[in-house]
Design a protein around this nucleic acid. Structure first.
Lengths: 358, 358
DNA sequence: CTGAAAGCGCTTACAG
DNA sequence: CTGAAAGCGCTTACAG
């Protein structure tokens, strides 16, 4: 592999000092009083040969990499992929490149990614934390490395957090169903102690209580292979349900599979509301009502907070939590309940009328 | 920011040489004849204090970063996101970290990403090329930096290419529709000269010709805002069509929106086949038939070829093209044509007719 | 078997 | 206004 020219090669070529080239390259020509003539000579040559400096060397020398490390749960999830897209764009405007990776919500994977990023001297972190990485985050903070958490957080850590109002989002979903005439509203959530999930669960519970209803909750382990079957069983056992709220994107997708397999009609047999909007929700038949997160604003706040911290690394850090509102996007899957429902079943519940497609 | 300990700090601490530590760290203790006693002393200390070496310094010294730069069209596209997931896993097994970015198929974005990666001394590249970056790729090859192209390629460049049989995939789609009784099969594709699209188009054209049919093609510019309207107009003008093949994932999604807006039934009014499978295709009503790419094998071949090249950087490079087969996944959207309009859907399938939301 | 030293390509305090 | 030199934290050829 041919060695690329270095600043010193160019210095020799042009018979100027490497110092001058460095100043010009970093836009410090004026400040450091490099003559305009010299500056032009250097710039012309650099453009001619298409020189680009070795950023590895620069990083080693300055201790800054201009890289932000970003950990998301799953880069192929529509919520996380759109967040990263926005973050990437905004970071670029500030001169930063973002490297992201998926944790799949696994503690060990998150720990090893943080280690890898640290070894490469990443300047700051944006993290949707997995459970169990409090120590790693604390260690970053101890070394004064800027960290912003989003989507979920650790209440005991004095981090900067960009969150949404999970409680209210779930509450709104239930309330919307109630207003539209649904009486028995079930919930499908993850079996998780992470804040985003517990807050959503609380929103559901409180909304149910407020109307003196009875809750009915199914908790499924993260990334469970048999999520569809679990939901299917849940719906079969709890025939009285006339609506279900799904607390994540993927649970809603699994739920729709289960509902299709059971041959239920939405919303006639069962109304549906999802959490996290999805490009395809408007395309399903019927289209799916969902609690949407303000993706662009989340990304904007995340980068704003991080850049701010990167600018003043020695500033006193304190806990700071930003909570953004959700928005309920009403579509057909939660349409007003039709009271006059044919035949049997308690509360107008129709039994399976179609065989699942083999 | 506290300075992290370096190899020399540890050398001083333990009263050994930095050389020995470096050898131990790189698993060369045996080879370089470091005594077992010394090795143990060093390892113990390193584990105790949790030392991790500065990879930036290592990169600068060795000229290797152990990073692979990967350019995809759009990381949030299900096809590309699953490819990157596999590539990431497989690369990690070989000691490489993958940094990926989306080009959005824009020439300038791709060029600037390649520049950014080069500045950071990335060891090798995996690229789904945008149009117009032949020169950049040639320049990488001139500098003996390993490059593997996938999904599409430049026939005039002697690169390593991992492709699928786009021609056959499209041909199969048309043939399947023909066998199921469809006579007037239209096509919706991108207005693109990239190989993956031209090959698919050729597959369609030849399949139509082989049956002495008449083709009917709509070409839409990449990322066109009004794709739905274009398709809608196309379907309205060409009322004779009884089936349509969509040559990309997103075109199929836009097509479904158009079809919903027009109030057409699938497959009764119009049968559908997509290119690239999609997690949600099985969930739509009806489920969508698609030409699936062998994602895991593509990723496997891509990494295999790249690692091979990274191992022997000076080896003669020659053009090498690997073509993998596609698989047609038959679902309900292309069900056998029923001459007399059906009462209910075939196979106990329920079609929910809902008006599009205004 | 072990260690001192040079050098990867930058930046910047310092001396002229 | 300009340049020589030190140093960021590693690796490795070389001398002992």
């Amino acid at each position: 592999m041919k060695r690329k020219p270095s600043i010193h090669d160019i210095a020799r070529e042009l018979d100027v000092s490497a110092t001058a080239i460095s100043f010009v390259l970093n836009g410090k020509a004026k400040e450091k009083r490099v003559s305009e003539e010299l500056e032009k000579k250097i710039l012309d040559y650099i453009h001619k040969v298409g020189f680009s400096p070795n950023l590895i060397a620069k990083s080693l020398r300055t201790g800054k990499s201009n890289i932000i490390g970003m950990l998301v749960e799953d880069i192929s999830d529509p919520f996380f992929s759109s967040i990263t897209r926005w973050v990437e764009t905004r970071a670029f405007e500030h001169g930063y490149k973002v490297f992201f990776s998926s944790t799949e919500n696994e503690t060990e994977k998150a720990k090893s990614l943080i280690r890898i990023f640290r070894e490469r001297q990443v300047d700051g972190y944006i993290i949707a934390p997995t459970p169990g990485i409090e120590a790693e985050i604390r260690s970053l903070m101890d070394d004064h490395i800027p960290v912003v958490l989003f989507d979920r957080h650790f209440p005991q850590l004095p981090t900067i957090n960009v969150l949404i109002d999970n409680y209210q989002g779930a509450y709104d979903a239930v309330d919307h169903l109630r207003v539209n005439g649904y009486k028995n509203i079930g919930l499908v959530t993850l079996d998780s102690k992470q804040t985003q999930m517990t807050d959503r669960l609380k929103g559901y519970t409180e909304a149910i209580k407020a109307n003196k209803g009875k809750g009915c909750v199914l908790k499924i382990p993260f990334a469970h292979r048999e999520a569809v079957k679990r939901i299917s069983d849940f719906l079969t056992v709890n025939k009285g349900l006339d609506a279900v709220v799904f607390l994540t994107n993927y649970l809603a997708i699994s739920g729709l599979e289960a509902i299709a397999a059971l041959g239920l009609s939405v919303p006639e047999d069962l109304a549906i509301v999802g959490f996290d909007d999805n490009t395809h929700f408007s395309l399903f038949s019927p289209s799916i009502t969902a609690v949407a997160q303000p993706v662009e604003e989340i990304a904007g706040q995340v980068i704003l907070q991080l850049i701010d911290r990167l600018r003043k690394p020695e500033a006193k850090t304190g806990k700071k939590t930003i909570v953004l509102p959700t928005q309920l996007i009403v579509r057909n899957s939660s349409g007003r309940k039709v009271k006059t429902k044919p035949v049997a079943g308690p509360k107008g519940f129709t039994t399976v009328k179609t065989k699942p497609i083999p």
